[in-house]
Computed example of a mutant assay.
Amino acid sequence: MSATMAFYPEPGSRVTCHDYGTERTPILNMWSAPVTLTLAGDDKLPLADHLAFARSLAAETAAYLAALERYAALTNQAA
C-alpha cells in the first residue's frame, strides 16, 4: 500500500501522542481542520519494525525542525 498526502499546518494545528501503557501501542495524531493524520501500529507490523519507523520519524522530525529554525533565522522570521 502507498499513499501521498500533503499536510500544511495552520494556526490551531495540533500534534498529539496518545499513550495507552500496556493496553496497546501509542497513537500519534496530527490534526488541522478538516484533515486528521493518524499513525498507529497494529499486530501485522512487528514491534521492532514499528520502533525503527518511529525512530526514523523522530530523526527526520528533528531535521525538519532544525531546517525550519535555520530558515526562520536566515529570513529574520524567528518566533
Rank of each mutant, 00 (worst) to 15 (best):
L51Y: 15
S13C: 05
A73E: 04
A59T: 01
Y8V: 09
A66F: 05
A52T: 10
P46Y: 01
A66M: 01
T25E: 05
L51N: 15
W31S: 14
T4F: 06
Y20G: 05
E60Q: 10
T16S: 12
S56M: 05
G21D: 00
L57K: 01
L65F: 05
A33K: 14
A58V: 12
I27A: 05
P11C: 10
R55V: 08
E23K: 08
A6H: 13
M1K: 15
A63W: 01
M1C: 14
A3C: 12
A54F: 00
E10R: 07
R24C: 04
T22P: 11
N29Y: 04
L68R: 02
N29D: 13
R70A: 03
D42M: 06
T22C: 09
M30L: 11
A48D: 04
Y20S: 04
F7N: 02
N29L: 10
T4R: 07
E69S: 03
R55P: 12
P11D: 12
A73Y: 02
M1T: 10
Y71F: 09
M1L: 15
E60V: 12
T36N: 12
A79K: 13
S13E: 08
A59I: 07
R14G: 13
L39K: 02
A66H: 09
T22W: 09
T22N: 14
T22F: 09
T4Y: 11
